[in-house]
């Protein structure tokens, strides 16, 4: 029953032809439960050493929102990856960023993207933004067993609400609790520092371009104080993944733009420190 290739049984199995759910996750749970990330047996009581993703920030701006994530994954005190991507399009009008166990998180994102696309194809219409946020909560809840083993996944979800015409942000806890955030939010190990930064830099009515800068500065501040968050890597030219979600959909900010913003931010900070140090000796 759980064979990944349904053709192994010739004609389409009855489960495929049974009318009912528009949810791919529900279909998977009944037809091939072993493929669901939360349904795998956990061996041993010791927490597993696996790469962890770190800081994600989201900022509401005029006509939408901006989501950004650094590129570092850590395993204990080691840097497991410097170019992991943690911000993804969930569908045309929403973005999902993930902190926590990288392997599970990336799989969860893949399943969530498929869940939204599957619904859209079967129903012929998009889920509401609240509907999408609730689906994600259900999927996180399914992962609770693994979370208790130290393999938690904590996403940050944001999207453009087509009915209200605004950008909205949702945060989650490991038990599947869903909380709507206003203005801005951050998750992951560097989130404390990022939130501090966002509080000072955010203001109402930021343009998307200004919001990109605010998000980047928050990540730079997080990287400054949190060893598990990676700052912009000017040597290898690895920039955070930054995306805007507006009425025109999910758009990833191109590297050239990010490079310019990073240069301005770094130059301003360098100038400030130059004054401070110079002042002491003068």
């Amino acid at each position: 029953m759980t064979h990944p290739d349904p053709l192994a049984t010739g004609r389409l199995p009855a489960a495929f032809l049974t009318p009912g759910s528009s949810s791919f996750v529900d279909f998977l749970a009944s037809y091939a439960p072993g493929l669901l990330p939360g349904n795998r047996p956990v061996v041993g009581a010791e927490p597993v050493a696996a790469p962890h993703g770190t800081t994600i920030v989201a900022v509401v701006c005029a006509g939408g929102l901006v989501m950004a994530g650094d590129r570092r994954a850590t395993m204990g005190s080691m840097i497991a990856s410097r170019e992991i991507e943690k911000v993804f399009p969930a569908d045309d009008y929403s973005a999902i960023g993930i902190a926590g166990t990288a392997g599970l998180a990336v799989e969860l994102v893949r399943l969530f993207q498929l869940e939204l696309e599957h619904y859209e194809k079967i129903e012929g219409s998009l889920l509401s933004l609240d509907g999408k946020a609730n689906r994600l909560a259900t999927m996180i809840r399914g992962n609770l067993g693994l979370a208790l083993q130290g393999l938690a996944v904590v996403p940050l979800f944001g999207g453009f609400d087509l009915d209200r015409g605004v950008g909205r942000i949702f945060s989650y806890d490991v038990t599947g609790g869903r909380y709507e955030e206003h203005e801005h939010h951050a998750v992951g190990s560097g989130s404390v520092f990022a939130r501090g930064s966002l509080k000072k830099l955010w203001r109402r009515g930021l343009t998307p371009d200004e919001a990109v800068r605010v998000a980047l500065e928050a990540l730079v501040d997080a990287a400054d104080d949190d060893s598990a968050t990676g700052g912009p890597d000017t040597t290898r030219r690895i920039w955070p993944v930054v995306a805007t979600v507006t009425r025109s959909g999910y758009l990833r900010v191109p590297d050239e733009t990010l490079e310019q913003v990073v240069e301005t931010v770094v130059a301003e900070r360098r100038a400030q420190h130059g004054h401070a140090r110079g002042g002491e000796h003068a």
């Binding site: 990944p4 290739d5 349904p6 389409l12 495929f16 032809l17 009318p19 791919f24 279909f27 998977l28 037809y31 091939a32 493929l35 893949r110 399943l111 498929l114 696309e117 599957h118 194809k121 079967i122």
Partner: peptide, 18 residues
């Protein structure tokens, strides 16, 4: 319509597995 839904499930499952 039944066959269409089956096709979407089939394709999504295959794409997710491979």
């Amino acid at each position: 319509e039944n066959l269409r839904v089956a096709g979407v499930r089939y394709a999504d499952l295959r794409g997710y597995s491979y």
